[in-house]
């Protein structure tokens, strides 16, 4: 029987190099997994995700707006994007809003972020005189960017809406 050639045992520094190498490789994989889970967008259609969010929206308090309203409130052209969904409070005493946009190109995210900031400034001015609690609500508004989706909420139910959005992705 042919004798199998034995491999030389690794030296101490070679073992260290291997351990560090595989640890770094694993950390890269773990980091990608984290990115996918917490920052990744979705291949699902805008309609599918929109349906998931709309299922939890309080339609007694919020009303769905048109692309013309998007232009009026945010200065954005709905036709420039893959999909747009905007809900605004029915009551003029509430600042509640939910906006979801799917961009055609990630370059568009910057202009949407700017439009959202401007909208928040306008709404702060609208409420600061008579409803300071609404100003606090506006200050606690959140913008989530997940892949090519932008999700913006001003609402007491923001956490619920955000959860519905991320679960739909």
């Amino acid at each position: 029987m042919r004798e199998q050639k034995k491999e030389k045992p690794l030296k101490k520094h070679q073992v260290v190099l291997k351990v560090v190498k595989y640890a770094l490789a694993l950390s890269a994989l773990a980091y990608i997994a984290v990115l996918l889970l917490f920052t990744g967008g979705s291949s699902q259609s805008f309609e599918q995700i929109s349906k998931g969010v709309e299922a939890v929206i309080d339609t007694d308090a919020l009303t769905k707006m048109t692309v013309q309203d998007l232009k009026r409130y945010y200065g954005l052209n709905g036709a420039d994007y893959e999909g747009v969904s905007l809900y605004v409070s029915k009551s003029s005493l509430s600042a509640a809003e939910v906006l979801m946009i799917r961009v055609k190109s990630v370059d568009q995210i910057a202009e949407i972020s700017t439009a959202i900031e401007k909208r928040m400034d306008v709404r702060r001015e609208d409420f600061e005189e008579f409803a300071p609690e609404q100003v606090n609500l506006i200050d606690s508004a959140t913008v989530q960017i997940r892949g090519d989706f932008v999700f913006f909420t001003i609402s007491d139910d923001a956490e619920q809406y955000k959860k519905a959005f991320t679960d739909s992705l």
Binding site: I32, L36, L37, G40, G41, S42, S43, Q44, G147, D148
Partner: peptide, 8 residues
């Protein structure tokens, strides 16, 4: 329709 997460 395999749904997947998208990353840039």
């Amino acid at each position: 329709e395999i749904a997947y997460r998208e990353l840039p």
